[in-house]
Nucleic acid binder design. Structure first.
Lengths: 125, 125
DNA sequence: TATCTGTTATATAAATTATATAACAATCAG
DNA sequence: CTGATTGTTATATAATTTATATAACAGATA
């Protein structure tokens, strides 16, 4: 079973935290293409949250192209790679993140260093 | 007056959109250190939203170290530069953004290219 | 057949978001 | 001093989002 840790005091919604951690799991190769995720009921009980909260996370992951959902089989990691779209989505998020950084006097080189660090983090997992 | 454009159909809260656009304004040097923002009542009427929604945006900007608020004078751009903190905050956001990108097969070099593009965007504004 | 799957449908409660008034103390122009 | 404007604070209300609780359905499969 994949490592999952929900912070119930976070201002981030539980289903968003869960979605992000599953994406971390994929990015760090803890879970791979073809792997099964726990069923919504199973994972809900394991974490101690409602079935629908897990279902919401799974539905978003499906919509965003990270998993496929099948009856009986459950959720399977299946990345739908639309690189053009992915880069566009990334760019949109980076605009906000980097605008904040620029205001705080962070340079392009410093931002690039952090990007490199994070890529190294994910290569190991 | 700074350019502000709120999308009322967005899933992003109005006060968050407003905060982000003010940060864009600073990052692109449309507004600078020492400049005044419109009063909460003035900007609210201009955009067509409630005074408290603008106040919420200003309060967050204050808390995050982008403005100072004075009675009578209103809100003044005043960047509190804590670079260590800024880089740490940036890193935390980048972890989510880049994890998604990595799942979609985006390389480190491609991410870096996008960072460079955005820095160029902001240099001009 | 019996069980487990995602899915869908309600219902409810809590929290967040946005609005509407109102009032306060500080500030400053006249 | 007067009057007007500022951010600030306090309520109240409505809509939306988030999370939970049950329940039932159809498809898959051991």
């Amino acid at each position: 079973m994949m490592y999952v840790n929900i912070d119930f005091n976070s201002d981030e919604a539980i289903y968003i935290q869960l979605r992000n951690q599953i994406i971390y799991g994929i990015a760090t190769s803890q879970i791979q293409e073809g792997d099964y995720l726990p069923s919504v009921r199973e994972l809900a009980e394991y974490i101690g949250i409602n079935m629908h909260t897990v279902n919401k996370a799974y539905s978003i992951l499906k919509q965003e192209g990270y998993v496929k959902l099948d009856r009986r089989k459950g959720a399977i990691i299946a990345i739908d790679i639309d690189k053009m779209q992915a880069i566009e989505d990334m760019k949109e998020e980076l605009r906000v993140t980097l605008a904040k950084a620029i205001c705080k006097d962070v340079s392009c080189q410093e931002a690039i260093e952090v990007v490199k660090e994070i890529f190294k983090e994910f290569e190991r997992g």
